[in-house]
């Protein structure tokens, strides 16, 4: 599923968050969106999954501008999307098994036994076994993310969106999640969009990278383009330096 973002603008009051974003998310590839905290990455993602309406611009998914769809039409498109939220967003009143089964129960007529089998299979893909009866509060941060990923892939979506999948995790767990993103992308052939601050992880998983700054895309290219760029904003971000054109808003 290819996603074309054209002239996307969004403001909250006087604060311009997205100032004309143009970008293509290529079908079957992993695109990582980089940028400072508060630069509009999450807002961009919320537009792609229909949680926010833009002030102007289009998001075209398979030739359909999803910003103009009615709720029921958008729902049909969203069935092709799986989202791993930053906090995993597991339903805390449900067990792990119920969380992973949730989209299957809501959107399919599969018998209970079949759903149980799919839940086991998806949890095994993310490296978790025998945790179906645990509640999210009993899991570690990394386990929650993996359960969130299992839930996101339960319906075998065509687009997977990861909102800061490695934030708050130790380096080993971060690498495990990166490997899971690569494996899932290869196994399901999905279009992946990853929001991240993690530079080594980005170079490991990305086919394409976009960097946002002040509501615009400052650089869009493959990992080599980013490694070789002379753009001072991108360089400062990649080299993790406090001094430079990027300033921390206080």
């Amino acid at each position: 599923m290819q996603i074309d973002i054209r002239g996307l603008r969004k403001s909250f009051g006087d604060h311009v968050v997205l100032d004309g974003i143009d970008m293509t998310i290529e079908d079957g590839k992993t695109t990582v969106i980089l940028g400072q905290t508060g630069c509009g990455k999450s807002v961009l993602i919320k537009h792609i999954i229909g949680l926010l309406k833009p002030d102007a611009g289009q998001i075209v998914v398979n030739g359909i501008d999803i910003t103009r769809l009615r709720r029921s039409e958008l729902t049909e498109i969203l069935k092709n999307f799986g989202v791993l939220f930053q906090s995993a967003a597991l339903f805390d009143s449900m067990t792990v098994g119920e969380n992973v089964a949730f989209p299957l129960i809501e959107h399919t007529d599969l018998p209970h036994a079949k759903i149980v089998g799919i839940v086991e299979e998806k949890l095994a893909i993310v490296g978790l076994k025998g945790v179906e009866s645990l509640y999210p509060s009993e899991l570690s941060g990394g386990m929650k993310k993996r359960v969130g990923l299992a839930r996101a892939i339960a319906l075998e979506p065509k687009v997977l969106i990861f909102d800061e999948p490695t934030t708050g995790l130790d380096p080993v767990m971060s690498d495990t999640i990166d490997n899971l993103i690569i494996d899932t992308q290869k196994r399901l052939g999905v279009t992946s969009i990853v929001i991240s601050h993690d530079i080594p992880g980005t170079f490991k998983i990305a086919h394409w990278i976009a960097m946002l700054y002040k509501g615009k895309v400052v650089l869009y290219g493959n990992p080599d383009d980013f490694k070789n760029t002379k753009d001072p904003i991108v360089r400062q971000f990649l080299e993790r330096k406090a001094e430079g054109p990027l300033q921390v808003e206080v």
């Binding site: 999954i49 229909g50 958008l74 969203l78 967003a89 597991l90 339903f91 805390d92 949730f102 809501e106």
Partner: peptide, 10 residues
């Protein structure tokens, strides 16, 4: 974000 998760699941 559990409410957002519901929305994104259609």
């Amino acid at each position: 974000e559990q409410i957002d998760a519901l929305s994104t699941m259609g």
